[in-house]
């Protein structure tokens, strides 16, 4: 049963990820990425990461993807010819990386197959996923948390300055 659920989510995720790259119209690509985000959130729920599933839907689907769609529609793109001429290089590189991954997985099982979700010592389920993440975030990872807020501030200032009309032109002239 757990396998069946995993294969459903994994199949949809791989299919929509391929569609993101393969579709011609950017709006359709963004929409299939939306479907993929929802299924990744479902995968997180099966992995007992409910907080991250909610965050995934709220931030990725609600904020980031809306921003993408906004820009796509703002720029009003026509359909363009889609692929680079370096398709051969890309295919070769992808093949090499895939072969490397297969080799790694085949040669060193790494005790991974012996691990199972049932051996989880129930850190999360004892007090609830969100609460334990919050506790960890505000104690052990307090400094990275502050750095993350600084990153967001820098990104905000950068975005405002970059997209402000006339600021760059008036400086250069």
């Amino acid at each position: 049963m757990a396998n069946l659920i995993f294969f459903y989510f994994a199949g949809i995720i791989v299919l929509t990820a391929t569609l993101v790259v393969a579709l011609r119209n950017p709006v359709y690509s963004a929409l299939s990425l939306l479907v993929m985000f929802f299924h990744v959130a479902g995968l997180y729920v099966t992995l007992h990461a409910e907080f991250l599933a909610a965050i995934q839907i709220i931030i990725y689907a609600g904020a980031i993807l809306v921003l993408y769609l906004f820009v796509v529609m703002l720029l009003n793109l026509k359909r363009e010819e889609r692929f680079h001429q370096q398709t051969l290089t890309a295919a070769l590189l992808g093949l090499v990386l895939f072969g490397e991954a297969v080799l790694l997985l085949a040669s060193r099982p790494l005790r991974l197959s012996s691990m199972s979700a049932s051996s989880e010592p129930n850190v999360a389920s004892a007090v609830g996923n969100t609460e334990s993440i919050g506790e960890l975030l505000y104690s052990t990872y307090l400094f990275p948390f502050e750095v993350a807020s600084l990153i967001l501030l820098v990104a905000m200032i950068g975005a405002v300055i970059l997209s402000k009309k006339g600021l760059l032109e008036s400086k250069s002239s």
Partner: peptide
Amino acid sequence: LIGLVGVLVRRNII
């Protein structure tokens, strides 16, 4: 891999 191929192959920045 799919993302990597997309970065290498597509021409549209978005």
